[in-house]
């Protein structure tokens, strides 16, 4: 479904991604793990078209999207929940969700999608007219996820959804990610919380200073001594 082929990304002189390749197949949960600064967010931003690679290409559903504008990439079915949630704090919860459906046409469809999102995140329904900036961290994460789902994506990119959340909320978020996947959405999950990520993923890639150093079935990686030492705290 998604094929990232050998991409190099620079920030000025900083070489952030060095020949990164990865693949996500339809229906999978794939996780991209790595330490802070490894290039995980850069990878997602490049897929979403916010940053351009200098070399290499990105294919989605058989189409080269390497140089497609960001809105075209959303239209084709890739949505992202960015790191730090990036909700529109000055808009109401409802308006945030509507922004998620920006490219969707028709009021009926919008209503149906809204209903689905409320079902998944009942707490959002209670706070519809509240300004999004007044939500708690966990609620903001749910809003960010709900907002991305409003676009009815085929592929959902999640950038550190567990960041800054209490353990109980982390559990809830991960079980929702699994549900979203079971309902038919393919997922590329970026995490520093490798343990949780590996526990729900089918396959995993490990990124180290801009390079993929290991990849394989998530379970295998979770059991590898090397990964345990580096990312799972021994």
């Amino acid at each position: 479904m998604l094929k990232v082929e050998n991409i190099d990304v620079y920030y000025g002189a900083i070489h952030a991604l060095k020949g990164v390749s990865l693949e996500v197949k339809e229906g999978e949960i794939v996780t991209l793990i790595g330490a802070n600064g490894a290039g995980k967010s850069t990878s997602l931003q490049t897929i979403s078209g916010l940053i351009r690679q200098k070399r290499g290409k990105i294919m989605f559903s058989g189409r080269d999207i390497s140089f497609s504008p960001a809105q075209e990439i959303v239209r084709m079915g890739i949505s992202q929940v960015p790191e730090g949630r990036r909700i529109f704090a000055n808009l109401s919860v409802r308006e945030n969700l509507e922004m998620g459906a920006y490219l969707q046409k028709g009021k009926e469809g919008l209503k149906k999608t809204l209903e689905k999102v409320y079902e998944k995140f009942p707490r959002l329904r209670e706070r519809l007219n509240q300004r999004a900036g007044t939500l708690s961290g966990g609620e903001q994460q749910m809003l960010a996820m709900g907002r991305a789902l409003m676009a009815q994506p085929k592929l959902l990119l999640l950038d550190e959804p567990s960041m800054g959340l209490a353990p109980i909320l982390v559990k809830e978020i991960f079980s929702i990610i699994k549900e979203i996947n079971e309902a038919g959405t393919t997922i590329l999950l970026v995490e520093q919380n490798a343990k949780m990520a590996l526990s729900i993923a089918n396959r995993a890639y490990v990124l180290e200073t801009g390079r993929i150093v290991t990849s394989g079935p998530a379970q295998e990686l979770a059991e590898s001594e090397q990964i345990k030492k580096a990312y799972l705290g021994g």
């Binding site: 979403s48 990036r86 529109f88 308006e95 922004m99 920006y102």
Partner: peptide
């Protein structure tokens, strides 16, 4: 809808791009 997009863009351009806003 345009007004909503204006407010969204003014708050966070990249996040607005991720919503498919031109």
């Amino acid at each position: 809808k345009t007004g909503k997009a204006m407010r969204a863009v003014s708050y966070d351009k990249d996040a607005a791009l991720l919503m498919g806003v031109n």
